[in-house]
Design a protein around this nucleic acid. Structure first.
Lengths: 182, 182
DNA sequence: ACTTGCATGTAAGTGGTTACATGATTGG
DNA sequence: CCAATCATGTAACCACTTACATGCAAGT
């Protein structure tokens, strides 16, 4: 899932600027897919326009810089649909937290406890964010389905952490282990 | 979580070759962290050796090419521990499947059903893989904790999919929606 | 006075993948 | 006989990030 596809998926549901797309991809509005920066979004939109999959119009504003609003074209909709029809990539889950968890035995228990709490907070925030998206914005039934998927997963992760965090901290406290190697 | 750190984390628990590390990162043996290819692993190991964080010895084999077995050094263990103590990156979850789910309305229901079943199978395989790791290999209590975390999350995802897949397919069937834009 | 938000864009750098090159052995 | 597994490594390429450049307005 590259930035190009991210842009098309957002434009599919309504016009937006590069700035909008970045905001949506970062804070909430569906960051299941990719979290892109300006440096990748602007060139992607330019390329998309070259390829005729989107069009743009510049809307001047008072005080602020002009907005360059992009709209998806019919060709763009088709290209996006075709891409969705292609073979699906694997889901990716990468967790620095779980890496740390594997090595609690070489870390001070206070740090482990702190990291656990940080992670717990992030999970809570993530759930909150999903809740907000579900509430205020006009999201489709399919969006609702996806949000609920995210919600149940986040819930169970949070619950597991809450009920088992003590085990992890204890594992860190009892560290009779300099490693056995080979 | 870069390839460098992946190598250190694996070597921390025992010697391995570049080939081993790739296998471990790809099929099962903890792919929560990163899935790396040869093209990144071999250079990373070479760099690590230059930096004195690992050492290597070449073990000739009959018939097969020689294995270049890497071991972590004391400096390597320290460097890895220091990295773990640094601030944690965010967990990343990227799902091409959920992107498809958001757009079921523009896809034929048969394809949606097929993709759902594929995804279901992957979830089941993932759980199976975790189960295998938990069973056969000598994994630490902390590893067990991580595996169980993965297990509960995978379980709930699978359960949600099973009980709600029909809603998704139905959303695809009932598609009175060419989009409203703006 | 300073930071944050709005808004677009470029250039340099990084961290990876894919494809290639090489080659013996085993299993279907 | 062909494919896969074992095993190492390089080179070309790609996608994305970070940092930079610019600039005004509103809030603190």
């Amino acid at each position: 899932m590259n930035v190009r596809t991210l842009c098309l998926s957002i434009l599919y549901e309504g016009d937006a600027t590069g700035y909008d797309i970045r905001r949506m991809s970062v804070d909430g509005e569906f960051s299941y897919f990719i979290e892109a920066s300006f440096g990748s979004i602007y060139p992607a939109l330019a390329k998309l326009e070259q390829d005729g999959l989107v069009t743009s119009r510049t809307v001047p504003q008072v005080g602020k810089p002009a907005r360059k609003v992009y709209s998806i074209t019919e060709a763009g909709r088709e290209a996006f649909a075709e891409e969705l029809k292609g073979p699906l990539g694997d889901d990716v889950f990468r967790s620095p937290f779980l890496l740390l968890a594997r090595f609690v035995n070489i870390l001070p228990p206070e740090l482990v406890e702190q990291r656990v709490n940080e992670h717990l907070q992030r999970l809570t925030e993530g759930r909150q964010k999903l809740q907000n998206v579900a509430d205020d914005s006009g999201c489709t039934p399919a969006d609702g389905w996806v949000i609920n998927y995210g919600r149940v997963v986040l819930d169970v992760a949070e619950q597991y952490l809450r009920t088992h965090m003590h085990d992890l901290v204890n594992l860190s406290r009892a560290k009779p282990r300099k490693d056995a190697a080979e």
